[in-house]
């Protein structure tokens, strides 16, 4: 009988192929490589996009100068929806593959998503006042976006309120999955219901209804928002990994190295 053989040590599962990316130690190192390039990219793209948007793009014939809010409104709104979908994606990966890093990624993204969601609502309110005459209307697009804000806040509150990490991750993953149903509702709300909010200026199925310089400026800022999201979520992911893996030998070694650097 082989039952009495000592089992493989539980703390070093043999991860092979692409599965080794599920290792927190490897993810910690990989994440570190993204932070600086993405930060630089975000700064350069923001500057380029806003330069185009404010100094090259012409005044809008109908709305005048106030339309320039679009360069921040659309990228933040897009990003708030993308981030929730990415969280739902990592929730699925975590639930199916049982990889802990997936849940850490999911949780690392939430605060940034909440910030972008708030900014979409805020810039939308400030754009709505001069163009619709009101900061807020209970319109399908606005209401579903507000629901997304509550989903983000709910996710953060829920995952922070459960002490047991495994249960917190599981509860967060379920909320991310269920809440993701709201994202298509936001996106298609302007088609499904008659709303004050205008339809999509940019879509895959038809030519964009914007001047080229305006479009390019907006897309540059949207790319900057992506780069920014990657940078800050990787920083947050590294913090989460360090905290959760603090009992492992590699974090202990890092800690010792840090201490020696400080005393030296």
């Amino acid at each position: 009988m082989n039952e009495h053989r000592s089992p493989a040590p539980q703390d070093t599962p043999q991860l092979t192929g692409w599965r080794r990316f599920a290792s927190p130690a490897l993810c910690y190192r990989l994440a570190g490589h993204f932070i600086r390039p993405c930060t630089k990219l975000a700064i350069v793209l923001t500057l380029a996009g806003l330069y185009l948007g404010f100094f090259v793009a012409p005044t809008d014939a109908v709305q005048g100068e106030v339309y320039r809010i679009i360069f921040i409104h659309v990228p933040t709104a897009w990003m708030s929806m993308f981030i929730y979908l990415i969280m739902a994606f990592w929730a699925v990966v975590g639930l199916v593959m049982k990889t802990r890093v997936s849940f850490m990624l999911m949780r690392a993204l939430a605060p940034t998503g909440a910030i972008f969601c708030f900014l979409a609502l805020w810039t939308g309110a400030l754009w709505g006042r001069p163009t619709w005459g009101s900061y807020w209307v209970w319109d399908a697009r606005l209401t579903s976006q507000l629901l997304l804000m509550f989903l983000y806040l709910g996710f953060i509150a829920l995952t922070h309120s459960i002490e047991d990490l495994r249960r917190a991750d599981f509860a967060g993953a379920i909320l991310a999955l269920v809440g993701a149903l709201n994202v298509p509702v936001i996106y298609f709300s302007v088609k499904w219901w008659s709303t004050l909010h205008q339809g999509a200026s940019v879509s895959l199925s038809k030519a964009p209804s914007m001047a080229t310089t305006m479009l390019v400026a907006m897309l540059l800022v949207a790319l900057a928002a992506w780069a920014y999201t990657i940078a800050v979520s990787m920083v947050r992911l590294r913090h989460i990994i360090l905290m959760r893996e603090r009992r492992s030998t590699w974090v202990r070694a890092l800690l010792d190295a840090q201490e020696q650097k400080e005393t030296a």
Binding site: G64, V66, R68, I72, W127
Partner: peptide, 18 residues
């Protein structure tokens, strides 16, 4: 900003602040 300074700069200021 063509008289819309509060709306435009209010949007950008809060974005960069956050």
């Amino acid at each position: 900003m063509g008289g819309r300074a509060w709306y435009v700069w209010g949007s950008y200021a809060v974005c960069f602040a956050l």
